[in-house]
Design a protein around this nucleic acid. Structure first.
Lengths: 332, 332
DNA sequence: CCAGGCAAAGCAATCGTTTGCCATATATCA
DNA sequence: TGATATATGGCAAACGATTGCTTTGCCTGG
């Protein structure tokens, strides 16, 4: 299944076969020979060896080659691979890349080693989610076409497409405050997450009390959201809660539905991400939309432009987020 | 960033550098030289060119090589890429492969062309979801290590891991019948889907009337499920409905929640797949569990075994499915 | 003092594809 | 007819990594 075999079959040389199969030159073989070559190729079901192809073609620095090979790096697999936000984001990227006729390779990494991967020879890299400076430096050394998609602002020296988690949280908390809530809880990651910072800032800016018994540090799964909300329900003054992401909120909503405690309590729930699932929960989830699709498109566009036209100064595109009002928040 | 460059830096030959970096032979260089080589490699942040590596290593037919490269083919992108069943299935595969230290490449294809992909040189292929005989033949010609994961039995001549959609539907409908339902609707694909066949068979076997006004042929999105259920609600005798997959059911449940029609109707909803989202809907969805995780593991195990120990006869592993009882079905 | 053994390192071929350049053969024109 | 284009196709050198074989030098035992 190599060019040489085809060449032997029809009695010519590999070079001619290559040129015919790639349509490289109009006049490289007679019509008769061309036909025989195509026939032979079909007969043995020829597929070019991509390794050989890339090896040879890699030298050529012309960015006009038809098929770009992109790499998407997902660091911190443990926490990010299961997050529907990144799953949906990646799906948008993948479909878009597919439709453009390019190829992608997704690289998972937990310990940030990149051995065995193709990042050295690809045309561009997209990094998903916060990652270490160390990893980023490694990536920077292997390509000049590097775009990050973050949910937190990261002052790295690469092109970035961001949607600021601090602002998203601000939007959500402000929305709750406008709806008359004074005692607003928080469920989610409290260590690095800019969303937590946004929550904090907005509470303080509005001179509301910061009650640490209303703040439940937790992971980002449905289960954890469920448990956290059950704990939070012990606080009788709290009327609303911001969940750091939708998954947590799905669990929280379930806890509320199953709540059998005293009295009739209507707790408002808001969160951030607006993944697809938020359209069918009960009640439908009010959440802050992070424009994954737009972000994916923009990242790809920047990368494509970089590859074709080289580098200008560092680019930073920030997307605004917006509240999607559904049924999980009430006025008090 | 090539072996040659490192060799030049330290004043030796590429062969020696290769052997040192790969630890090929213990005695291939003096300690002093080794150190210098490692230092140089770190300095220029050397990463081996995978294309060159694969090209060279490809010849070696020994299956003992440490790092297997697998390919997962997802045909019919349009309909399958957005299906959470396949997303979750792929995630299990991906994580498992990642943890084993192998590499994967996911190939999307709509028109079934495989040009530009690496299927010719990989160690094994997994096919996700029903695909054409034509595509399968192409794949078969490029590797002997080929496993399909189907939701329908497909009598192809390759190893397959299946969970029979007909039986799943049978299970679901029987469950409804046991709960006293006589007029059971169906929402979903009616053209090829074995699930529809199962629905039909079970209705007939139980001598229930087959009412085509209760059967809504539709796609597989939440939206379509929502619309279909709204149409179905016009039929006043129907008390239960089987949705061909969970997504449809999510939309259907929402339609029920928002139903403002006459009287108090409790429609039972059951579906097939048991994707993660089914754990947080309202009401929690009763559904037939398709063991994606087990199927993924099994497929990988078969493939691994094939690669290491060659071929015996064709393997076919069928996984049983089971009802996961939650809150969306009622007794009449 | 010499044969044999081993450590240290290089040579060169190879994987499959592409492509610049060269060599024919045939056609065209002055 | 001789000179010049043009069609047709092959040669061989890359791309980067790996590895069998060779070479060189040094040490040791007889």
């Amino acid at each position: 299944m190599s060019l040489k075999k085809i060449a032997e079959m029809v009695g010519t040389s590999p070079s001619t076969v290559s040129r015919v199969l790639n349509n490289s030159y109009a006049t490289c073989a007679s019509e008769q020979l061309k036909e025989k070559i195509w026939a032979a190729a079909h007969e043995i079901n020829y597929l070019p060896n991509q390794s050989a192809r890339k090896l040879k073609l890699g030298e050529r620095e012309d960015a006009q080659k038809k098929t770009l090979h992109l790499v998407v790096v997902l660091a911190r697999v443990e926490s990010l691979a299961g997050d529907p936000f990144f799953q949906e984001l990646y799906r948008y990227l993948e479909i878009d890349i597919f439709q453009k006729g390019f190829t992608v390779e997704k690289i998972l990494t937990a310990d940030e080693t990149l051995r065995g991967t193709d990042i050295g020879t690809c045309d561009g890299i997209i990094v998903l989610g916060r990652c270490s400076r160390n990893l980023l430096d490694t990536l920077r050394r292997s390509t000049r076409n590097l775009v990050g998609i973050w949910r937190n602002p990261m002052n790295f020296e690469i092109d970035e497409v961001v949607c600021d988690g601090r602002k998203a949280a601000d939007l959500a908390v402000s929305y709750l405050i406008e709806h008359g809530h004074r005692k607003i809880g928080y469920i989610g990651d409290c260590s690095y997450e800019s969303r937590y910072v946004g929550y904090n800032e907005t509470i303080i800016r509005n001179q509301l009390p910061l009650d640490y018994s209303c703040i439940i540090p937790t992971g980002q799964t449905r289960e954890e959201g469920f448990d956290a909300m059950n704990r939070l329900l012990k606080n009788e003054e709290m009327t609303a809660v911001l969940c750091a992401n939708d998954c947590i909120a799905f669990g929280a909503l379930r806890a509320l539905r199953e709540y059998k405690g005293l009295g009739r309590r209507k707790i408002s729930v808001i969160s951030i991400d607006n993944v697809e699932e938020a359209q069918t929960t009960s009640p439908l989830l009010t959440t802050v939309h992070i424009p994954r699709e737009d972000m994916a498109h923009m990242a790809l566009q920047i990368l494509h432009d970089r590859i074709l036209h080289g580098h200008r100064e560092k680019l930073r595109v920030e997307f605004p987020c917006r509240i999607v009002e559904r049924d999980s928040c009430f006025r008090v």
